[in-house]
Nucleic acid binder design. Structure first.
Lengths: 194, 194
DNA sequence: ATCATAACAAACACGCAGCATGTTTGAATG
DNA sequence: CATTCAAACATGCTGCGTGTTTGTTATGAT
């Protein structure tokens, strides 16, 4: 334990409380419909604390999005590795995609990451965040598939971006239609084979 | 001239002024950063007029988006038909896509239609609007390609949605990277051939 | 013990959205 | 042509939300 631990702990605790409360509310009601008084009330602190830890409401939202992307990427990674009985880089891509869609069954998560985040933080910021998590692993998956000679040689980052865009859209589709989308996406990915 | 024409004209005029002013400001600064006082000042009317014609700020934005989608769809349609020297339903799809990307070089248009609209109006509303314009023609193009036996038999609406999602993402990419994206999308579409 | 600084808390200022009134314009009717 | 009525605005008010400022308490350093 460091000497200045209590201060650090205190700081981290309120920060976590704020992010957790914000996550819940942003997920339930969206960014615009959630007020900072609501958030601090749920977190058990005052607005002074909020604006001490974060520059503004956007910055708090960015922190929530960052965290959410991190846990999401972890979930996807596990899904892509699990079930190694059926190998092959293309299969891994499809498994990862299914893992993404499964993780995106949460309404609030969809709202925050796909709908609100681009509008609130801007595409550039979202890309930067995503680039450090889900998109990063997707690029690696695409690269692996290319190096294995499983699909055509294409620039991996643009391809990953476009695949990501498709998965985002598919995630927003009503649950009973999602299988159709999965089939079509499978066909699109399979069409990349040499 | 109908008897009650002047009244109708007046109404239409202020409505147009509002939509036009709103379009400019929403395009420049985004939905959230644009205030209704700003809009009515630019339109040369008062806020009373705004709330007489539209239920709220969202409704005005919806009108702008609707109009923008309409003119966009027209542009795309012309691009897809022009240059008939190279026929074939797949080529038509690609031409239409290029037309879309060209029309989307406008920063404000991107902001309104792709970034802000889903967050402000919700995905469902945007889909409904898009379904009456750009997406509709895209579905027709896909159907034509399927019926001509040019591509695999897949459910056309999901496929159109996914293609639309890719084009949206590609439109947001920096201008100097867009050609890479076009190539990859071409490869993806070509992969759909039987 | 005291001093500086970080971590909060409370109060304030400003702007905006929506509504509830008032006022004008214009058409319909006897 | 005067009257009546409704639509098309205009003006003012209210409540709320964000960000900032000023004040207070806790914490570690000397």
């Amino acid at each position: 334990m460091d000497v200045r631990r209590r201060q650090e702990d205190r700081r981290a605790a309120t920060r976590r409380a704020l992010v957790a409360a914000a996550r819940t509310l942003f997920a339930q009601k969206g960014y615009a419909a959630t007020s900072t008084p609501e958030i601090v009330k749920a977190a058990g602190v005052t607005r002074g604390a909020l604006y001490h830890h974060f520059a503004d409401k956007q910055a708090l939202f960015a922190a929530v999005v960052e965290e959410e992307h991190a846990v999401l990427a972890l979930t996807i990674h596990q899904a892509a590795e699990g079930g190694e009985d059926e190998p092959g880089p293309v299969k891994a891509l499809i498994r990862g995609g299914d893992g993404f869609l499964a993780a995106m069954q949460d309404e609030g998560r969809r709202r925050m990451l796909i709908v609100d985040a681009p509008a609130v933080l801007g595409r550039a910021t979202v890309d930067e965040i995503d680039g450090r998590h889900g998109l990063r692993t997707l690029v690696e998956g695409v690269d692996a598939a290319i190096e294995a000679g499983a699909i055509k040689e294409l620039p991996s980052l643009p391809l990953a971006h476009l695949l990501s865009a498709m998965f985002d859209r598919a995630a927003l589709v009503p649950a009973d239609e999602i299988n159709e989308y999965r089939k079509v996406m499978k066909a699109l990915i399979r069409g990349l084979k040499k």
